[in-house]
Design a binder for these strands. Structure first.
Lengths: 148, 148
DNA sequence: TCCAGATAGTTACATATGAAACTATCTCGG
DNA sequence: CCGAGATAGTTTCATATGTAACTATCTGGA
């Protein structure tokens, strides 16, 4: 006698991951959108360029796991807000070179501590060993899903 | 001498969670959208009702962490596709009673094993102890983020 | 040198989404 | 019994997003 197969959402890991992630991202996004009206893609682009200035749009896309259209749009609105500068690679006219402008850098410097503090709060329910473990589990799991 | 604050995305847990989650959700979504052209919200509604028939829209929203507009739209398109039935609560005319139709149930029964298999694959890089740990960490972390 | 791909980035279009306003129904105090 | 909220669910509207088509530039082989 086969009983009907059931999927209990409360125990389904992909679902739980999704709910948790959306809440965390939402909470962080609220901070920087309130303060600087930055969208999530915009903030990601800024974070990538704050870490590594001079990246091309494609490189930003790779590092942030965004697609190139998203990056293109975020770059455009950041340029309009004068939070980014864009040059062209000297040897390849297709490639852009993006960096934070002074204004962009100022925002970045103000937001980084906020982001880190929110992460700290979020992780505060875990002790040091658990945090290390979480890091390790995320690394392992990331290898298990296809990049695209 | 203060150096500039840096946020390394590769070590920023909220960001890593987000990338991982989007890849996992995307991989799962591809399966059921290819096979039955179900959107993510639609599948979530079906999963909730497969587990607990007769829920109201609000209850579905609570259980799936979706907002009521999303649920309303998903329900509407599922009704059009005859994958759901809707009645009205006998004592409160505002409240709907949603269940999977026979067609909906057939789809649900076909997709549940697929979802579980994808979860199994996803978790296959972890051993049993690590899986238990992941479960525990997710539970703990979920208590650390505000519901809305 | 020239042209058939490849690649970087943008644009256009159709669809998805979220916030706020709206409708319908219910509840409760007077 | 009636009217001021509360609640369930829908609709509207403005914006965000993904896919596919497009432009511009580069590369490598004939």
């Amino acid at each position: 006698m086969r009983n009907k197969p059931v999927l209990n959402l409360d125990h389904f890991i992909p679902y739980r991951l999704s709910v948790l992630t959306n809440r965390v991202s939402g909470a962080i996004a609220r901070h920087y959108s309130d303060r600087f009206s930055l969208s999530i893609p915009e903030w990601r682009v800024m974070a990538a360029l704050g870490q590594t200035p001079g990246l091309s749009a494609r490189q930003v896309a790779e590092r942030t796991a965004m697609d190139k259209v998203q990056v293109s749009r975020a770059v455009q609105s950041l340029l309009e807000a004068k939070r980014l500068t864009r040059g062209t690679h000297c040897e390849d006219g297709r490639v852009s070179q993006l960096s934070l402008s002074p204004q962009g850098l100022a925002i970045y410097k103000e937001l980084v501590p906020v982001a880190l503090e929110l992460e700290r709060e979020f992780l505060s329910v875990l002790d040091a060993a658990e945090r290390k473990l979480l890091d390790r589990l995320l690394t392992k799991l990331s290898t298990a899903v296809p990049k695209s």
